[in-house]
Design a protein around this nucleic acid. Structure first.
Lengths: 113, 113
DNA sequence: ATATTATTCAACTAAATGGTTGAATAAAGT
DNA sequence: ACTTTATTCAACCATTTAGTTGAATAATAT
C-alpha cells in the first residue's frame, strides 16, 4: 500500500505528468498526440506514461498500432484518500462533515471513506 | 505555483516523510524526538525535515537549542485542492456535496472551497 | 513488397535523491 | 570553564530520475 503511495505521489511530483493527466481529463488520447504539445522526445513522454500507468493514474490499452491512454481513478483516489484521512484541511473539514452526514443519515456509513 | 506542487508531491512521495507528518498529527515535536523511532541518522531526518519545510508541509521554529516542528496546513491544502479540482474522485463527490450543503444552508458559501 | 506511422527499447548522460560519517555550531547544565 | 545536548554542515557515495539518440518492433496504408 505504502509503496503504491510512493509511486503515486512521485508520479504527481512532475509537472509534465500532471499536464498529461489534465489533458486526459478532456478525452482519451494516443501516445503521439499526448507528446505533441511537449518540447520533448516521444521516448521521454512514453516513459512518463509508464510511470503514470505504474502508479495507477492512467490505463493504457493497445488497439492496433495505437496505444490509447485514459485516466484511471484508482491512483488519484488513493492519494485523495490519504490526504483526506490526514485531516487538518482548511477548505472543508471532512472529518466533521462525515460525522455530520452520518448523524443526519444523509449518506450510509459505507458511502464514506 | 506549479513548482510548489512539485515540491509538495515529491515531499509526500517518501514514506519516512509521510510517517513524520503522521507523527506531527499527535503533537509538535523536536528534531531529535522525531528521529528517535527511525533507523536512520539524525542528519538524514534533519534533511527530510528541510524538504518538508520547503514544501510548506511543516513549520520549524527554534526555541533555545531545540527546533520545534509542527504541521503547516499550507502544503497539504495545496495538494488537496489540486487533486480536488482534478475531480474524478470516487469516495465523496465534493462538487455535489458542496452544492448540496450550499442549498441546505448548512454552511455558508465562504466556508467551502 | 515497401513505406509510413506508432511506440518502445537500449545505451548513454547529467542531475537529483537519500543515505552515510565526522566535524562544526550553538545553547544549556554542572 | 567544561561537558552534554540539539541540530546542521560538508564531503562523499550509490541509486534513481529525466532527458537524449538511434535502432527495433509492429501494425497499417499504398
Amino acid at each position: 500500500m505504502s509503496h503504491k503511495l510512493n509511486q503515486i505521489f512521485s508520479a504527481l511530483a512532475d509537472p509534465t505528468r500532471r499536464d498529461i493527466l489534465m489533458m486526459l481529463l478532456e478525452d482519451d488520447m494516443a501516445v503521439t498526440d499526448i507528446a505533441d504539445p511537449f518540447d520533448m522526445s516521444l521516448a521521454a513522454i512514453s516513459k512518463h506514461l509508464i510511470v503514470l500507468a505504474n502508479a495507477g493514474l492512467i490505463a493504457q490499452e493497445r488497439r492496433g498500432r495505437v496505444k490509447w491512454c485514459k485516466l484511471d481513478t484508482e491512483g488519484m483516489n488513493a492519494a485523495f484518500v490519504w490526504i483526506q484521512s490526514f485531516g487538518q484541511l482548511d477548505p472543508i473539514n471532512l472529518e466533521s462533515l462525515e460525522e455530520f452526514l452520518a448523524k443526519e443519515h444523509l449518506l450510509q456509513q459505507s458511502d464514506l471513506v
